[in-house]
Design a protein around this nucleic acid. Sequence first.
DNA 1: GTGTCACTTCGATATCCATCTAACTGATCA
DNA 2: TGATCAGTTAGATGGATATCGAAGTGACAC
Lengths: 95, 95
Amino acid sequence: MAKQPKLTDAQHARIARALAEPRRYEILRQLGAENGTLSCTAVRAEQKITPATMSHHIHELESAGLIEISRDGKFMNITLQREILQAYLNRLSKI
Amino acid sequence: MAKQPKLTDAQHARIARALAEPRRYEILRQLGAENGTLSCTAVRAEQKITPATMSHHIHELESAGLIEISRDGKFMNITLQREILQAYLNRLSKI
DNA sequence: GTGTCACTTCGATATCCATCTAACTGATCA
DNA sequence: TGATCAGTTAGATGGATATCGAAGTGACAC
């Protein structure tokens, strides 16, 4: 089993809020369906939202730790952080 | 393994939103720490909120399916629905 | 350089929702 | 019957946030 980061209460709350938005859940699902990584453009191709809104959601997901961003020239790649998601699930399952 | 109810997209979204509020997460934790059932009054004793706000949160949790409510005279008992929570976790873990 | 493309930042709008107070319903008990 | 207690309902308020258009930045191609 992979090592599980410990989540603070604040991180937990951030993740919960990030997951509460259907659009963000959908982005994570897209990532998961593609081995965890996609370009921002590829994600946007599946969702009818403006670049501004997309940028906003990406930031929410990143600040929750659920994705990581890397830049490649003018492109942006987004990678699902499965350990963070798993840490969240573990914590919730302990209720 | 216990039987897992299937969650619709709408149920999933409702649960995610219910869990996004720290106060509601806290209520679920209280329930979990007490074998899954508590009176509404007992829950309220731990949280500094008015009855009206409490009532609101209880309804959110109930409509998400995360708790069940039963009445006993003028009292209300709240029971954690672990299968629903587990079904949500299972679905999230499949991302 | 010029243009284009990918994303960002700003500011505005609009909706959602947590919270409260106040007034109410229903149950219990003196 | 009246008083009290548990929870509800209605309505108001304030704060958070999803969304967009428009203008900006930075990379790449020509």
